[in-house]
C-alpha cells in the first residue's frame, strides 16, 4: 500500500498531464456523441420533409390537416388527417389522465411511505411492468379488457379509445413512477425534517413541501410518459378499433396517427401519393411531439427559475 502511494506521488506530474489529456479527450468525444444525436434528429426531420412535403403539390395543407375523411386507397384518394389527429389526442389525454395520478401516487408511496421491504419489492415490480413488450399488453387488451369494457359500459364494441387509453396508461405508469420517484428522492432531507419539526403531519409534508419541491421533476416524468403514449403503435392498433372517425365520446373506436402509419406503410408503393401522405402524417406527429417536449422543457425551466 505504502509503496503504491510513493509511486503515485513520484509520477504525480505525469499523471496530471495524462489526466488533463484524458479530460480533453473525454470532453471532445462526449461533445461529438452529443452532436451526433442532434445530427440524426435533423436527418430524421429532413427525411420526413423530403418524402412528406411533395404531397402538398396535389393536396392542400388545410385540406390535409382539417379534412375529416381518410380514404387513402379510394379513387380519387382523400387524405384528411383530422380524425387521426383527434384519435391520437383523445387516446393520449385519456391515458395521461389515468397514468399521471397513478404514477405520481406510486412514486410518492415508494419514496415516502413504504417501509424498506415493501419499497424494494414495489420497485422491482414497477421495473418488471416497464419490461412487458407492448404487443403482449395489446394481446391482453384485446382478449380480456375489450370484452370487459364492452359489457361494463354496454357498448356495441369493446375496441374503443377508452380501452386503448387504459392499456397505454398501464404502460406509462412505470416511466412516470420511476422518474417521479427520483425527483422526490432528490428533495433535500432538511426540507422534510424542517417541515416535520414545525409540526406538520406526514401527509402535509408530502403535499405542501415534497410535491412542490419536486414538481419540475414530476412534470418532466409525466411528459415523458405522455411522450411514450403518443408514440405507441402496437397497442392502439390492436385495441382501438382503427375506425377513422372523429369520436363523440371516449367509448368509440378511434384510429391514431401511429396505427395508420404502421398499418398502411407496407401497402404503399415508394413515391406514391399514399406513401407521401403517410410521411406527412409522420411529420405532423413529429410536430406534435416536438410541441409537447418544447412545452415541457419550457415549463420545467420556468418552475426551476421560480423555485
Amino acid at each position: 500500500m505504502e509503496r503504491n502511494t510513493a509511486i503515485v506521488k513520484k509520477s504525480a506530474g505525469v499523471k496530471r498531464k495524462t489526466a488533463r489529456f484524458k479530460e480533453f479527450a473525454w470532453e471532445k468525444s462526449i461533445a461529438v456523441l452529443g452532436s451526433i444525436s442532434i445530427v440524426i434528429l435533423a436527418l430524421i426531420f429532413l427525411f420526413l420533409v423530403k418524402d412528406g412535403i411533395p404531397l402538398f403539390r396535389h393536396v392542400g395543407v388545410a385540406e390535409f390537416l382539417f379534412g375529416n375523411t381518410w380514404r387513402p386507397i379510394s379513387e380519387p384518394p382523400v387524405f384528411g388527417i383530422l380524425p387521426l389527429i383527434a384519435g391520437s389526442i383523445i387516446v393520449t389525454l385519456a391515458a395521461a389522465a389515468m397514468s399521471v395520478p397513478m404514477g405520481v401516487g406510486c412514486a410518492i408511496y415508494i419514496a415516502e411511505i413504504a417501509d424498506p421491504r415493501a419499497k424494494e419489492f414495489l420497485k422491482v415490480v414497477v421495473e418488471l411492468i416497464a419490461g412487458i413488450p407492448s404487443v403482449v399488453l395489446g394481446f391482453i387488451g384485446v382478449l380480456t379488457l375489450a370484452p370487459f369494457v364492452q359489457e361494463m359500459f354496454d357498448l356495441p364494441t369493446g375496441l374503443t379509445a377508452f380501452t386503448g387509453a387504459v392499456v397505454l396508461a398501464f404502460m406509462a405508469v412505470p416511466t412516470i413512477a420511476t422518474i417521479s420517484e427520483d425527483a422526490i428522492y432528490s428533495v433535500p432531507r432538511e426540507y422534510r425534517e424542517a417541515s416535520l419539526a414545525m409540526g406538520a403531519t406526514r401527509w402535509q409534508t408530502i403535499y405542501k413541501v415534497i410535491i412542490p419541491a419536486s414538481s419540475s421533476g414530476i412534470l418532466a416524468a409525466s411528459l415523458l410518459g405522455v411522450g411514450r403514449v403518443i408514440g405507441e403503435t402496437m397497442v392502439v392498433m390492436m385495441v382501438c378499433g382503427n375506425a377513422p372517425v372523429i369520436p363523440n365520446t371516449i367509448f368509440q373506436p378511434v384510429r391514431t396517427m401511429t396505427a395508420t402509419i404502421a398499418a398502411e406503410m407496407g401497402e404503399t408503393v415508394h413515391g406514391g401519393d399514399h406513401y407521401m401522405a403517410l410521411f406527412a402524417v409522420g411529420l405532423a406527429l413529429f410536430a406534435i411531439s416536438f410541441a409537447i417536449n418544447a412545452a415541457a422543457s419550457g415549463a420545467v425551466r420556468r418552475r426551476g427559475a421560480g423555485a
Binding site: V142, A243, V245, P253
Partner: peptide
C-alpha cells in the same frame, strides 16, 4: 362505412 373497425388481420376479425 366510416365507423367500420379496421382490423389488422383475418384472425383479429375471427376473434372479435
Amino acid at each position: 362505412v366510416r365507423t367500420a373497425l379496421l382490423m389488422p388481420s383475418s384472425q383479429a376479425i375471427a376473434d372479435e
